[in-house]
Design a protein around this nucleic acid. Structure first.
Lengths: 215, 215, 215, 215
DNA sequence: GATGAATGAGCGTTCATTCAT
DNA sequence: TATGAATGAACGCTCATTCAT
């Protein structure tokens, strides 16, 4: 966002106002959920009147969509910006970032809940963020497998396992009240989780004299 | 549940009615979310009047709690009933079950969302199901590690990684629209996921030196 | 009521049941008022089911009417039964009775409230009890005045003053929390009140010239 | 009330709106009673929407309390403002005023009914208006008795007799349908009632020896 | 007759949205 | 533009009444 400062003072002010309101919305949505949050509370938290919200957003729903969009954009930006080093580093960095964000903005369960129920949110969040991520990771898995760096597992499932793992962990975070993960730094957690996954993708299949999926 | 039929006709009818209403509530909650579901819709889906709901449940919220409680009880029951065979089988069975349930009852994002926001749901779901599961798994990890079957990783984090992985995967399921996992049987998915995790817990730690995608 | 035992066992039982239900209704109405009393509570207090109430009374409203009727009948009965001795004794006896009843059955404000709002109650209570009482007292006043026992005041107003006084006092009683009247026996109160009224009706008119407290 | 205009336009509008709504509430409560009055009706009578009521009052109950408070304040104001002349004049003036008010605002039975059932109304009406009145009158009675202007009757009972008389009369008024008092001016009624009471407090005690109606 | 579960109209209240200022 | 009072549809819930058992 920063690279593209709107020219006029007016446009700049609009962007600032929108951000101010979205920030407030994020806070209140996170505290109360979408439905139980009231526009009055959001207005109070944003230090504007209720009417002002409607000068910048068409509806309460649009606040949510704006928020989702903002975060989706950020996420995509980060993914694109993240230097592609070796797998371990990349993954650790991505997970670390993810965990840090979850600690700050507890919006994941909200987004998932709303995405499941509301097509617009679904579009902005699942289709625009999760799907590309799946595709990208799946392709990456394929590369790693073909290069021999990983076992010949189903790359689609591997990609989804990683995403699910990351998302699930983030949710545990968001649910809170778990010293075992709260007292560990995001980086350490990311390292541990990434270690398990990557190690799981290497090595031999767990046989399997026992019957599994792999044989 | 069938083994323990309440004696009197009246008690039996009450149990049936409650189940009928909870079933309807599950359907509507899953479709609309808790807040957007109305007691009128639930009554219609249960084929009773609105008043009847309140003969069996004290409030709309109690419907949610009843649902959470029911599913929590089921989950705990399953965990206790599940035969403790070797790690692989147990895990596969548990995950398979989990994935099957998610396909049928798309309530996970709802529960997580509500648990995050409502202390009662938190108590019934997180504290009574998730916490014990964490503790149990953590202890189990410890055993496996001590026995040498697994690397000396932090058992707390290992347990949470597995739970997060399972939960995250279930959410991807619930979000739907992903042929890559929908066209695979629950058993196969469970096998693959379990394979990655267990393999990840064995073997050597992945060192940071090895490079990743470039090779 | 006692003089006229219904012949059959069945009829007798009906009368008993009705009384049992009306008693419960009196208790609950007095505690909660008519609207806030529920048929469920009344049924519980009467130790019958809700349905049973409707076997004996057509509606909740009919419970109130039945109660009003019962008390109106009692009141009329008492008035007719009360021996007509000298004025002082009669009045004292009537007021004593009134105050005793108020202490037991705190239904006066309820009746007045409902009579003001509901024509049926008005008919049963105001027209059948209060009006005859006014007429009777007015005629009595007339007699006393003509006989010279009282000053030539407007007998209609005199009668209403006495009734109002008695009713107002009863309300003060019903409102409770007033040791000054609660710790005095009904008889003493009745004597004092009756004394003031009767004395007020005798003697000379109070002329405006006399000054009041200042003297 | 006019002497103390709130400074700002906004504050003025709020006061006006509250009064407008309370007026409507008074009308509807008087017609239907508190429970049977609906906020819809009150809103319609006040010519505002239902929502607007809740911008000014927290609940339907608060409307009642606001009304009680308003009238309690007025009553207290009047008592304080009323010039203390001789007893007769003071009493006549007070009663006249009372009767006039009852004719306009038929809220007495409602207030008594609600005061009996609802602690908040009790506090605002009985404790803040009736009790001080009792105390004031009792003290006044004591003065009159000590000065010899009245017989040595129990001043507490005398005070309550007067209050009860006034209240009871007001209720007869409110119940309506009585030409004998409706066709007489408030001032005349007040004069007659006050005459009876004051005369009753003077003179000698009515002894039981004198016979009553027979003479 | 007695029961109490079922009913559903109707209530008080909330809150996203509008619009006159 | 910013405001916040006004709006009214829609919600959760209650309870008098009915009726199958």
């Amino acid at each position: 966002m920063a690279e593209n400062q709107p020219a006029t003072r007016r446009e700049r002010r609009i962007v600032v106002r929108k951000a101010q309101i979205l920030d407030a919305a994020a806070t209140i949505f996170s505290e109360k959920g979408f439905e139980r949050a009231t526009t009055r509370e959001i207005a109070a938290a944003a230090d504007v009147s209720e009417g002002t919200i409607y000068n910048y957003f068409g509806s309460k729903r649009d606040l949510l969509l704006g928020l989702v969009q903002t975060i989706a954009d950020e996420t995509i930006q980060e993914l694109n910006d993240s230097p592609l080093g070796n797998v371990e580093d990349t993954m650790r960095r991505a997970l670390t970032h993810r965990f840090q964000q979850t600690r700050e903005r507890r919006l994941l369960t909200l987004f998932l809940h709303e995405a499941r129920l509301h097509p617009d949110v679904y579009r902005h969040y699942v289709q625009e963020v999760l799907e590309p991520l799946k595709q990208g990771l799946e392709a990456y898995m394929r590369v790693l497998i073909e290069s021999g760096a990983m076992r010949p597992l189903n790359p689609a499932i591997a990609a989804r396992t990683l995403i699910g793992m990351s998302m699930g962990f983030a949710i545990l975070f968001e649910l809170g009240n778990d010293p075992a993960i709260e007292e560990v730094s995001s980086a350490e957690l990311a390292a541990a989780v990434s270690d398990i996954f990557l190690n799981g993708m290497r090595g031999e299949a767990v046989s399997g004299q026992r019957d599994g999926g792999a044989r």
